[in-house]
């Protein structure tokens, strides 16, 4: 392990590409940087590759997928060189993960209390009682009143929202240095959603825990994240600090995405702006810009390869035009 060299960066990934065994490219050249204590948001639609990026950090890529990268370091640990067993225990100890499909990540035959305490007993080397006390505290922090009943239940006895909250509590058990939250609040009611998000903020402030938040909900990302990555069809379209991104969006996709979401500010007689067409099938390779088929500014040049354009050190986008 080489902790000294890159100690200041939490995540340093260069040109991550994920391919299937038959050679289809699902994610192309994603570069991800994260500082300690930062809250980074990844926003994109379904099949844009945002979950896959997270899963590659967690070493949880589905079978048959293969990743390549120029550089892949997480908290100084080099995934390209390190022994897989070591990577696994490192992830278990340092990273809390809140999966998207919460039902599938809980064992149906094991009571919640045993699942939630397991990792803590293993890594923090604490007793089971200690672990359960901590679990009860966390579970009530995510808004569950009857903690005893919950801890003694099986996952199938709980609703989707409750299972999601169990996962959130579980991710926080080991006092992780980083949380990866993949659509953490998708199954929750808006009032609970707010509560959970605020809990993340508190954890972030009190323990300097970094949060990588993945969501399709631009409103949530805007409220919560300091820096935002906009991904589309497996590529980063734009990256900027929050205010910069919303005040000065450069990529046509980002511009459209901001306008397309009905918020309470919209005038009712105003027609919603729509993005024509559908999210592209990533299995079909596209030449040039991936957004060109839905882009209102499309010109011939869009069929050629696009380079990242830098506006300042925190803001870049992938488009031929300066709009």
């Amino acid at each position: 392990m080489n902790l000294k060299e890159n100690d200041e960066k939490l995540i340093d990934i260069r040109n991550l590409t994920i391919t299937t065994s038959s050679g289809q490219i699902l994610i192309k050249d994603i570069t991800l940087d994260m500082e300690k204590g930062e809250i980074l948001g990844v926003v994109g639609e379904s099949s844009s590759g945002k979950s896959l990026t997270a899963k590659s950090i967690l070493n949880l890529l589905p079978e048959g997928l293969h990743w390549e990268a120029e550089k892949f370091q997480v908290m100084g640990l080099d995934y390209l060189k390190e022994d897989p067993d070591k990577i696994r225990s490192f992830i278990g100890e340092k990273i809390g993960y809140i999966p998207q499909n919460t039902g599938n990540y809980l064992h149906p035959m094991i009571k919640i209390k045993d699942q939630i305490a397991d990792g803590y007993v293993l890594y923090a080397k604490e007793s089971m009682e200690e672990a359960l006390a901590r679990a009860a505290k966390l579970v009530s922090a995510v808004g569950i009143r009857d903690t005893d009943r919950l801890l003694n239940s099986y996952p199938w006895q709980l609703s989707g929202g409750m299972r999601q909250r169990v996962n959130i509590a579980m991710a926080l058990m080991n006092k992780p240095r980083m949380i990866i939250a993949d659509e953490p609040t998708a199954a929750l009611d808006s009032t609970v959603q707010r509560q959970v998000i605020d809990l993340f903020k508190i954890v972030n402030q009190n323990h300097n825990t970094s949060v990588l938040m993945i969501s399709h909900d631009f409103g949530l990302i805007k409220y919560y994240c300091e820096r935002i990555l906009v991904v589309y069809a497996g590529q980063i379209m734009e990256e900027a600090d929050r205010d910069e991104l919303f005040n000065n969006p450069k990529h046509p996709y980002t511009k459209a995405l901001i306008k397309v979401i009905p918020s309470l500010n919209i005038k009712k007689d105003e027609r919603l702006q729509e993005i024509k067409g559908n999210v592209p099938d990533m299995r079909v390779p596209v030449k040039g810009c991936v957004f060109k088929d839905r882009c209102p500014y499309r010109k011939e040049i869009c069929d050629t390869e696009v380079e990242d354009k830098l506006i300042n050190e925190n803001h870049y986008y992938k488009c031929h035009f300066d709009l």
Partner: peptide
């Protein structure tokens, strides 16, 4: 639905 498609459907309904 994805947000980019959601607006299409809402406009269609209107």
């Amino acid at each position: 639905l994805d947000v980019s498609v959601q607006a299409q459907i809402l406009n269609l309904l209107i």
